[in-house]
């Protein structure tokens, strides 16, 4: 019967994330009776936030990202430490404002895409011309 308890350090490139792994029975033999007594309630921080130091919550205004399931008034969980990739939902600085867009990295250049046909995409010639403030990892959508 294997139970993983205690800290693990996961080397994630430039930074170290300390992740506390709660007691979880590995499927081998009987489930641990002690597991029933694990008294921690679900902690959204633990599940939704990987790196608390570099994670921020922002609120969306406008509906240009509705196609991505991000509506006016929703909150986004944003990790500033993540490397933006093709397809990332990013917070970019445009004209001094924080703006949420889908990042597209193509052979012909960089595109900041809206997820709503009523909005124009923005083309940028190189990633270096763009300030990416952070990468959104979750949307807290109001249902």
């Amino acid at each position: 019967m294997g139970v993983i308890v205690g800290p693990r350090v996961i080397d994630a490139g430039a930074s170290l994330f300390s992740v506390l792994i709660s007691p979880v029975a590995v499927a081998a033999g009987f489930p641990s009776p002690a597991q029933d007594y694990f008294d921690g309630r679900i902690d959204l921080n633990a599940h939704l936030i990987k790196d608390i130091t570099s994670t921020f919550v922002v609120r969306v205004t406008g509906n240009s990202m509705e196609g991505a399931g991000i509506s006016d008034g929703d909150e986004l969980i944003v990790n500033r430490a993540l490397e933006p990739k093709d397809g990332s939902v990013v917070i970019a600085v445009l004209d001094g404002e924080l703006t949420v867009k889908r990042l597209r990295i193509t052979a012909t250049g960089i595109v900041l895409q809206a997820e709503n046909p009523r909005y124009q995409d923005i083309k940028v010639s190189a990633l270096s011309e763009l300030t990416i403030w952070g990468v959104a990892t979750r949307c807290l959508h109001h249902v």
Binding site: V58, R59, T61, I70, E75, I91
Partner: peptide
């Protein structure tokens, strides 16, 4: 008082 990001 969260930071506001524009979806526009």
């Amino acid at each position: 008082e969260l930071p506001v990001v524009k979806a526009a």
